[in-house]
């Protein structure tokens, strides 16, 4: 399983809408030549996809959306690879600006292709998809309702414990200096 983190400068509901707009995948996913939705039932969508990168791959994917922040997918049919599955998980960015997407991808290309090579290709695919997602979203207008709702969510201020930096204490024999976790003793002259 290869994981990647994608920072997107757009609120999670908008990113989720883009990721679940399967019919527009070929507009932005690198190498996606075709994405045809074949059936839809509730949050489950089946689609036929053709990806052309190092080789042309035809597969049927089943997407299972768990609104508002998870999208799972797995291969249901395909001759070119043995298995293809993954997840997009969306989280609010801690600084209040946009979305952090954790993407997971697992490809089983069969015994003919070494795993390290599959992992390397998977990693590149995810990095390229992340860049493409950022670029694609930058070209879209965020729906007003989503923009308004996300603008109201300010990041919570984090309460902090008091943290000592420096302390100097005068002792009978001199000074005790505590600085960032280390203690130093300065003896008075003649003591």
């Amino acid at each position: 399983m290869i994981k990647a983190v994608i920072n997107v400068d757009s609120p999670p509901p908008h990113v989720f809408n883009v990721l679940t707009d399967f019919s527009r995948y070929k507009e932005w996913i690198p190498g996606c030549q075709q994405c045809t939705v074949t059936s839809r039932s509730g949050n489950v969508t089946d689609a036929d996809i053709i990806i052309s990168s190092m080789k042309r791959i035809e597969l049927a994917l089943r997407f299972e959306a768990i609104p508002p922040n998870v999208l799972n997918f797995r291969m249901t049919r395909g001759k070119d690879i043995k298995a293809y599955s993954g997840t997009y998980r969306l989280m609010n960015a801690a600084d209040g600006n946009g979305t952090v997407v954790i993407a997971e991808l697992e490809i089983d290309a069969g015994f003919m292709v070494p795993k390290f090579m599959v992992d390397k290709i998977s990693r590149k695919m995810m990095d390229d998809t992340g860049s493409a997602l950022r670029k694609h979203i930058a070209t879209l207008t965020i729906p007003t309702a989503i923009a308004r709702a996300s603008a109201q969510k300010a990041p919570e201020a984090k309460p902090r414990r008091a943290r000592r930096i420096l302390r100097i204490v005068k002792m009978p024999a001199g000074y005790n200096v505590w600085l960032l976790g280390q203690t130093f003793t300065i003896k008075s002259q003649g003591s």
Binding site: P159, R167, P172
Partner: peptide
């Protein structure tokens, strides 16, 4: 001893 100086980060 007698505290002469202390610097701390607080809320």
């Amino acid at each position: 001893g007698e505290k002469i100086l202390e610097i701390a980060e607080t809320s």
